[in-house]
């Protein structure tokens, strides 16, 4: 697929885990272009390389070969710290396992990326509360993860991912640990962020019901993109 002026562009990206005889090629040459403002669902069988691709897209990992352009920058040439700064500025990540800091209130969890950005206390509070408001948890700001349900924890994690107004939100099976009702809530939230905040959303899911919320569905198989499904705008 080829899109004019993509925010994300992968060309022949490969990923090899391990070395020598135990080396395993998880990605065999991925080509993807993602347009600004798209809502992409990534599907495919287990082990097909979805998470591996997401980690590279999220600048958490580097490809073994090929090119990965993010906003026109060659990420494969950047070092750890430069990638950390890219994540800090442009990316938000939501994990299947929520990954909130324990014993830390929802607000403090959400404020964390702002702390690393060096925002002052007032800005952190305002932006943190706004993000919590967006995910519908304003009244729960002083609860720790242990005091929140799974769905609420995932919404806090989404608030943390969007608090910096990122360009791209990456979510690896964000509903994998939730029941279908909670899952739909999360999907509606992502849809809203995509439509109304202009955030490009990239999401891995196993469930066709969840993928149905996306505009583009990328199917993976054996470390390759098998097919890209483009839905007509709703």
């Amino acid at each position: 697929m080829s899109i004019a002026d993509p925010i994300i562009s992968m060309r022949g990206v490969t990923k090899v885990y391990g070395q020598g005889p135990t080396a395993f090629q998880a990605l065999k040459g991925i080509d993807i272009d993602i347009a600004q403002g798209d809502f992409v669902a990534v599907m495919g069988p287990s082990g097909s390389g979805k998470s591996t691709t997401m980690n590279i897209l999220g600048c958490l990992d580097v490809p073994s070969g090929g090119e990965f352009l993010f906003k026109g920058r060659h990420v494969e040439t950047l070092d750890r710290d430069q990638r950390a700064l890219l994540r800090r500025r442009y990316l938000g990540f939501v994990f299947q396992g929520f990954n909130l800091l324990s014993r830390t209130t929802a607000l403090e969890n959400v404020e964390l990326p702002l702390l690393y950005r060096g925002e002052d206390k007032k800005t952190r509070y305002d932006m943190g509360m706004a993000a919590l408001d967006k995910v519908g948890l304003k009244d729960w700001w002083d609860h720790t993860p242990a005091e929140l349900s799974g769905g609420q924890q995932q919404r806090v994690a989404i608030a943390r991912a969007i608090v910096t107004h990122p360009d791209v939100l990456l979510a690896d099976e964000p509903t994998g640990n939730l029941d279908s009702e909670r899952s739909v809530e999360i999907m509606e939230l992502l849809t809203d962020l995509n439509r109304n905040s202009g955030i490009t959303v990239l999401m891995v899911t196993h469930e066709p019901d969840m993928a149905a919320f996306a505009r583009t569905i990328v199917h993976f198989k054996d470390g390759l993109v098998e097919r890209v499904e483009q839905k007509v705008a709703a």
Partner: peptide, 16 residues
Amino acid sequence: TREIGIRLAIGAVARE
């Protein structure tokens, strides 16, 4: 270690 992973993932530099 997991906490360190979270901090790194949301954009902390290893140094920080």
